[in-house]
């Protein structure tokens, strides 16, 4: 028995040492990375977002709103915190971490969509949490209920890197060729130059009657978030960015979902800009799939958006009503 324990000990000690050293090395490299979502999280935790205007939402926020255009037009700094593949739960995590490590934004442009108030079971792109999840209660609270990491991943060194050979490989690749880690995102914005693809055809083939079930926990969290924003004096605007018309028809209970956002806007007197009927939503050439605008579409849309924001939010008192988005206007920001 003694021989067995000694052998296990001799075999295990190098593994334990390796775990601590490798964790420190991999994490430090990822904390320098600009690749995909790593760059955004690094900016959040390093206090480099520090913007007056921030954009929240899913991939539709990420690819639809160009912070350059918003900054130039509104003369305020802007950062796009749209997070690919996720709904409100992860936007809220970003919001919490943003407030902890950066200055408070004046305005949040929140891109809402049919999936905002749902919760997917899997933790999409779970590698993005690697550098900041160890012993981070906020990240654990927001992500542990998904199928992805377990309790020990948040507390033991290296365990969370198990099986992450793609990310580990990318670390070594970027050490050899630093430009390899540049994801081409500008302050979170990720313009896409793709041609129209067959995502919608595939989706139609797979789902004859596609409906989205809203999640009550997500709705409650969304409500809490709105109240927190209002009470801390952050202006909040909801935007339903353009969606290709055929995609709109594909979701059978779309009106009901949009109605939920309208109710929130009414309840808290918030501005809700809905671009479902905007001319952009009818022009396939500006999309690469039913939900996502390409770069040309995104730039055109951002220009429209800032014009509408100026008219509805910053120049509201002048009574200008020439917006292209279908706007629900707030009258008061106070909340008990």
């Amino acid at each position: 028995m003694k021989k067995l324990f000694l052998n296990i000990l001799y075999f295990g000690i190098p593994i334990i040492l390796f775990a601590f050293i490798a964790d420190a090395f991999l994490t430090s490299q990822l904390k320098k990375s600009r690749k995909d979502e790593f760059g955004i999280w690094n900016d959040i935790y390093n206090g480099k977002v520090n913007s007056d205007i921030v954009v929240y939402g899913s991939s539709r926020a990420m690819v639809h709103m160009d912070p350059r255009i918003i900054s130039d037009s509104m003369h305020e700094s802007c950062y796009n915190l749209g997070i690919n593949g996720h709904n409100f739960w992860l936007s809220y995590l970003r919001h919490k971490e943003l407030l902890k490590y950066n200055k408070k934004p004046k305005l949040i442009i929140h891109s809402v969509d049919i999936f905002t108030l749902t919760k997917r079971p899997d933790l999409f792109n779970l590698d993005q949490f690697l550098p900041y999840m160890l012993n981070n209660q906020d990240v654990m609270d927001a992500t542990i209920s998904y199928k992805g990491y377990n309790y020990f991943d948040y507390h033991l060194p290296l365990l969370r890197y198990v099986g992450k050979y793609k990310t580990i490989g990318s670390i070594f690749k970027s050490m050899l060729r630093p430009s390899a880690s540049d994801s081409g995102r500008y302050r979170g914005y990720s313009p896409q130059n793709h041609a129209w693809n067959d995502d919608l055809v595939k989706a139609k083939r797979r789902f004859a009657d596609f409906r989205v079930d809203l999640d009550s926990a997500s709705i409650n969290l969304f409500d809490q978030y709105i109240r927190e924003c209002i009470s801390s004096g952050i202006e909040l605007v909801f935007v339903y960015t353009p969606e290709y018309i055929e995609g709109q028809e594909f979701v059978k209970n779309r009106d009901e979902i949009l109605g939920t956002f309208r109710q929130f806007a009414d309840k808290y007197n918030l501005l809700f800009l809905d671009y479902s009927d905007d001319t952009l939503s009818f022009q396939k050439k500006y999309f690469y799939n039913a939900s996502h605008l390409n770069k040309d579409g995104a730039e055109l849309f951002t220009v429209k958006l800032v014009n509408d924001l100026k008219r509805n939010s910053y120049e509201a008192d002048s009574g200008n009503s020439g917006n292209s988005g279908n706007a629900t206007r707030k009258s008061s920001k106070s909340v008990n």
């Binding site: 075999f11 593994i15 290296l158 099986g163 050979y165 580990i168």
Partner: peptide
């Protein structure tokens, strides 16, 4: 054995 441990670490699905 270390090779197998490393393979499990890197490539665990």
């Amino acid at each position: 054995y270390y090779g197998i441990v490393i393979a499990i670490f890197l490539f665990a699905g």
